[in-house]
């Protein structure tokens, strides 16, 4: 059974069918790519998967469980975490606190315990700090734990977003254009990080990307979207050599 099973997912905005009969099946541990020209509906698919929009038709199953039409926070609790195309960090919080917000639902104490600083508060906060630092270390951010998130350089902000998403302990990670705005060196480093996350956290990753080097370098399978419809689906090397895909991307 596939980890993520999407069947005939569709949504329209006004008269525009932004996503039309989108289906995909992703196995556990896979690195899966979703590509397509601008406006093809890639981010809309992410928004459907994470409950930002409710689909008009179709099913989403995670580990066999129907999660269609669940709310965003419920879907996150079921195990889907995401990053955003335009970075969305908690800018006025420290790097460490950004990750600790991600840990919110995994480490708990009551409001009263927090207000009165009961012993449980200190022990849980300590565990949270340790776990958060562990995650930051993976992304080489532990030295900047005290920085405000907005003071990090761009590439590190992207990494922090991934760290925050991982803090929620997901089984499926959605990355929306993780390499956007990065130079070739940073992209190369990011590719290694993504592979490392997959192996180290035993993660399944679905990513949207325009950088073909990154896509061909790390994705095992691809789906190509064009005008909301699936153009083609399959092994990365096959898809990228498909004349139809080349036409959609490069024009006639």
């Amino acid at each position: 059974m596939a980890l993520l099973d999407v069947e005939n997912l569709s949504i329209s905005f006004g008269g525009l069918r932004a996503v039309d009969s989108f289906s995909v099946s992703i196995e556990k541990g896979q690195l899966y790519g979703l590509i397509g020209p601008n406006g093809a509906g890639k981010t809309t698919v992410f928004n459907l998967l994470t409950g930002v929009y409710a689909p008009d038709e179709g099913f989403i199953r995670l580990n066999g469980k129907d999660i269609t039409r669940l709310k965003t926070i419920e879907i996150n609790k079921e195990g889907i975490a995401r990053t955003f195309q335009n970075i969305r960090l908690f800018k006025e919080l420290s790097v460490l606190d950004n990750v600790k917000v991600g840990l919110h639902n995994r480490y708990k104490y009551s409001t009263i315990e927090g207000l009165l600083r009961l012993p449980h508060y200190f022990s849980v906060e300590k565990q949270m700090n340790e776990r958060a630092m562990e995650l930051l270390k993976v992304f080489d951010l532990d030295q900047q734990a005290d920085y405000l998130a907005s003071n990090l350089p761009y590439g590190k902000q992207r990494k922090l977003e991934i760290a925050r998403a991982l803090a929620t302990d997901p089984i499926l990670l959605l990355l929306d254009e993780p390499a956007a705005g990065m130079n070739p060196n940073e992209t190369k480093e990011l590719m290694e990080t993504i592979r490392f996350v997959r192996d180290h956290f035993d993660m399944t990753i679905l990513l949207i990307e325009h950088d073909m080097k990154l896509v061909s370098g790390i994705c095992e399978e691809l789906t190509v979207l064009n005008f909301g419809k699936i153009l083609t689906q399959g092994k990365t090397s096959d898809v990228l050599n498909d004349p139809e895909v080349i036409t959609a991307y490069l024009g006639e």
């Binding site: 994470t50 926070i73 908690f90 006025e92 919110h104 998403a165």
Partner: peptide, 11 residues
């Protein structure tokens, strides 16, 4: 700081 991101991490 960011309502959409907060929701996405389960707040």
């Amino acid at each position: 700081d960011n309502l959409i991101a907060a929701e996405s991490v389960g707040i």
